[in-house]
Nucleic acid binder design. Structure first.
Lengths: 108, 108
DNA sequence: AGTACATTTAACTTATTGGTTATTTAACTG
DNA sequence: CAGTTAAATAACCAATAAGTTAAATGTACT
């Protein structure tokens, strides 16, 4: 559920905005060129994923970032860390070989 | 793109399987109750996201885990770490309060 | 050359997603 | 209480995703 919530760029932008503090739906919608209901539904998705919580006060609903699911997501990715180090090593080796070959060829 | 690729549970299971080493499409498909073409397309999505690379040899295509994009994804999430600590603190405080209240009520 | 095998591509179906506008809900305000 | 404001919901539409079966591709085997 969390990855699906993060898959949309508008939702990621909303999360980024919320790092600066709570905001109302209207405020969150402002930078985007989409309708308010569209934003409202993005917020619903984020809330369902546990990435935001909302409080109502008068006619404003304030959204607040809840990063817990991100912690879980990184925990899941941790299992792959050893592989990305390895991938990097392989990439690194590859780049070095390529570079060396270039040096040989047109040794200017 | 990476988050969308990770959003599907079948694809995450495929990645998990690949931590045990390279595998052919048939081998990857085996644990799932879906058709081979379906698996083939999941692999295409993973490849497009840079999460696997593939080598052809005879009639088998072997898939290998490429964890680089996961590194980038965690890097992106790093920006939110301060918030999840904070969320945790808040959750923790909440749990402690709740626990204390329970202790009071039915102090068994 | 002909067949078998592993995989991909094509064509199609169904469900989900992300957007729209119009309507409804809820709370404040004069 | 009527009107305004903020947001959510409803009803709808187009695009995408995930699955299917059937056909095509590419390589190996005899």
């Amino acid at each position: 559920m969390i990855f699906a919530a993060l898959a949309d760029p508008t939702r990621r932008a909303i999360l980024a905005r919320l790092t600066e503090g709570e905001a109302t739906v209207g405020e969150l919608a402002e930078p985007f060129d989409i309708s308010l209901p569209a934003v409202s539904r993005h917020l619903k998705v984020l809330e369902a994923a546990g990435l935001i919580s909302r409080t109502r006060s008068a006619q404003w609903r304030s959204s607040r970032l809840e990063a817990g699911p991100l912690r879980e997501a990184t925990a899941w990715m941790e299992d792959y860390r050893r592989f990305w180090d390895e991938s990097f090593d392989r990439l690194d080796a590859h780049l070095k070989r390529t570079l060396a070959r270039n040096e040989e060829n047109h040794h200017d």
